[in-house]
Write a protein that binds this DNA or RNA. Sequence first.
DNA 1: GAGAGTATTTGGATCGTTCCAAAGAGAGGC
DNA 2: GCCTCTCTTTGGAACGATCCAAATACTCTC
Lengths: 351, 351
Amino acid sequence: MPKATPVHRQITLADIASGCGVSRATVSLVLRGSPLVNKNTRARVEAELKRQGYVYNRAAANLRRRTSSSIALVINELGNPYFAEFAAGVDEALGKAGFVTLLGSTGESAVREQAVLGSLMEHGPGGIILSPAEGSDARQVLTTVGPHVPLLLFNRELDDEVTEINHWDVLALDNVHGARLATQHLIELGHRRIAFFGGHRDSSSCRQRREGYQQAMRDAGLPIEPRWLIESSPTRLEAARQAGALFAVDPAPTAAVCYNDAVALGLMLGLNQRGRHPGHDFAVTGFDDIAEAEVSVPPLTTLATKPRERGRQAAELIIQRLHHPNTKATRTIAPVQLVVRESSCPPIVTP
Amino acid sequence: MPKATPVHRQITLADIASGCGVSRATVSLVLRGSPLVNKNTRARVEAELKRQGYVYNRAAANLRRRTSSSIALVINELGNPYFAEFAAGVDEALGKAGFVTLLGSTGESAVREQAVLGSLMEHGPGGIILSPAEGSDARQVLTTVGPHVPLLLFNRELDDEVTEINHWDVLALDNVHGARLATQHLIELGHRRIAFFGGHRDSSSCRQRREGYQQAMRDAGLPIEPRWLIESSPTRLEAARQAGALFAVDPAPTAAVCYNDAVALGLMLGLNQRGRHPGHDFAVTGFDDIAEAEVSVPPLTTLATKPRERGRQAAELIIQRLHHPNTKATRTIAPVQLVVRESSCPPIVTP
DNA sequence: GAGAGTATTTGGATCGTTCCAAAGAGAGGC
DNA sequence: GCCTCTCTTTGGAACGATCCAAATACTCTC
């Protein structure tokens, strides 16, 4: 593990202290803006700090004070624009509150997630914002982060019991309601045979979105054909490949509620390749409202989840938790909004 | 500045030591895998470490050893998929080498960049990877990071002299060559009136890309009309708005080399709004090859820069620098590849 | 069983900060 | 001039690790 590297001689409190004839303690008080120090002394010390180009050593301070000034952000896939936006929001809000973000990307692997969490823990984060990788296990997470570091789960959920016991907070999207809105929208347009396309059955968000879809279908008295529930990895490519599965059933559906935007965009691509025209002879909805949804052809009807705002919210929640470590865990459900664009067309009426 | 937060009592070396009847020093040796310790002792200590759930305190170790195990990554805009990919690559490679990434996003503001750098410095990073915000000033950067922390500039350059003196490394794209390739490609297709569209004249990457464009034009003996050099913010929206500027000159250009993909996609949108059809009656090229370029309509001819790979490369460069602090600064130019897709069509021949 | 040599282990100082209890400096009252 | 009170300042012990020189424990050899 060649992770070490020598650092140049630092300018310390002691240098400043001797530089202007006061004690280390006084300089320390000045640095922390204590009202105890005399005006003149403060001015003298401040001048010396600037003169020597002093840089505060937060690690040393944190060691002594047994505090932390960092929050770990563990993301399952930074390359995904949705999570990138989320990360940007987190970093923005954490920075504003004086925390620094320790980044860790897991590449959607539970094994790597464990390694990343372990490595981040050694840097003593005050809290962790975790968007779990697929297949991530609550008990394993618990053993590596321990019971004392506050943790906020974003987007996906883990074993309820473990989450509960450790007062882990949860920030989730209103998946059920969102999928329901999308489905109702398609029903109102006149669709009767509607598929749910994409996602993995074992991810919590997929289950919830399917649930919303099924609720809407049931409420409208519409049948749900099991073969209309089509799984696919949440990537554009995989979704494009799976598009054909929609037409394996006869009669085929006329619309699909997709697991997310990536899947929806992929599906539209796949439809085009099969000579279908999403937005004209097949209706598609997404979930997330990534930047691309607005400018795709046709523009995608989807559910806006405002990832950057969610990131800020996550940061605020974890900071709240730091200040009140013992209050009951919260479960925050962020609202989502239906954004109607051209990919959701009415069905073609066959005479 | 309420950036502090209490942390639970830690399990320390001393706990492990007394837990199995050895000294702190021995436990420390075990932790670092020293060959000095006896096999049996090692086993005993390791069992105790596991039993008590010990977590290494890297901050304390770094303090004593005067080393660092983190690298700061300062990005001008994380929400931009290009930089998100870059960040993902950086984090991946840093993690593999045992470093943790300290993230900072500047939102393209030089003022915020200063604040972010200052805050990150307090956490004692071993090095900094900086993608400067627009308008960032070398001398200011120098005063806040100091002359001893290795810095790698990505993507944009700063004052050459300051960069040189401080042995700052540079990782840049081959902008000149890339723009030249794109321009040559259009010329080979038969275009004679070619514009350079988008970007700000004062950014180094824009200047370099314009330079490549001009070289290719000159080499082909083609005229460069000053009004064909059109500025715009590098955003899709702004580019779409500026599209009209191309047709303010008569005769109008038949093709445009764009500053980057965002601009190119925006331009195509703007052309469509004006009843033009990019890929049919107007040729467009981009720069970056973001994910969207491949699936836009029409698919965008562009220059692949492989941001994730660049991220890994940046991480490797800074790690190299940590190991050899005194070698001469390097200036790495990453190659770019022309990816021909349908947005670059031959000109329409007017009889 | 003394002496030499190697293999392990160890106490105490140290990194740069903060905490704490106590000391010093003035001001005012009598 | 002494006492009290408030306002400032301060030395030295932490925090949790590592370094270092020196101590101790073993093995041989003769």
